[in-house]
Amino acid sequence: MKILLIKLSALGDVIQTLPSLTLIKENYPQSIVDWVVDERNAEVLTGHPYLRKVVIFSKEIFKNPAKFVSFIRRLREQKYDLAIDYQGLFKSGMVIGLAKAKLKVGFENHRELSPLFYNVRLTAYDPEIHAVRRYLNLTFQAVRLLDPDFSSDIETIPEVVWPSLSPPQNLIEKPYIVFIPSARWETKWWIFDYWERLIELTLSTYPGLRIYITGGPKEETLKNWAKMIENKGEAVKSLVGTLSLKELVRLIKESQLVVTVDTGPMHLASALKIPTVALFGPTSPLRTGPWGGRFKVLKSPLDCSPCFKKKCRHWDCMKAILPEQVFQTMKEFLG
Rank of each mutant, 00 (worst) to 15 (best):
N224Q: 13
S166A: 14
W225V: 11
S164H: 09
L198K: 08
V161N: 03
Y176W: 06
K246E: 00
P167E: 11
L239W: 04
G216H: 05
W195F: 15
I157M: 07
G289V: 12
V236C: 09
F179P: 04
K232Y: 09
E254P: 01
T283E: 12
M266N: 02
F280Y: 14
S270K: 10
K174V: 05
T263M: 08
P285D: 01
E234F: 06
T242E: 14
N170L: 12
G281H: 04
L245E: 01
I157N: 04
I199C: 06
L279I: 05
L268M: 13
L222Q: 09
I157D: 01
P290F: 03
R184M: 07
S164F: 03
T260Y: 02
S255F: 01
G216Y: 03
E196W: 05
M228W: 09
L203A: 08
A183W: 03
K218F: 11
P163H: 11
L257P: 05
T242K: 15
K188V: 01
P285I: 06
K174S: 15
V178D: 02
T187D: 03
S164M: 07
T205H: 15
I157R: 03
I211C: 07
R184N: 07
E173G: 09
W195G: 07
L203Q: 12
V258F: 10
I191A: 08
P163F: 12
F179H: 06
P163Y: 12
N231K: 15
T221F: 02
K218I: 00
I211V: 13
E219P: 08
V261A: 11
A235V: 00
T288V: 13
P163G: 12
E196G: 00
I213F: 08
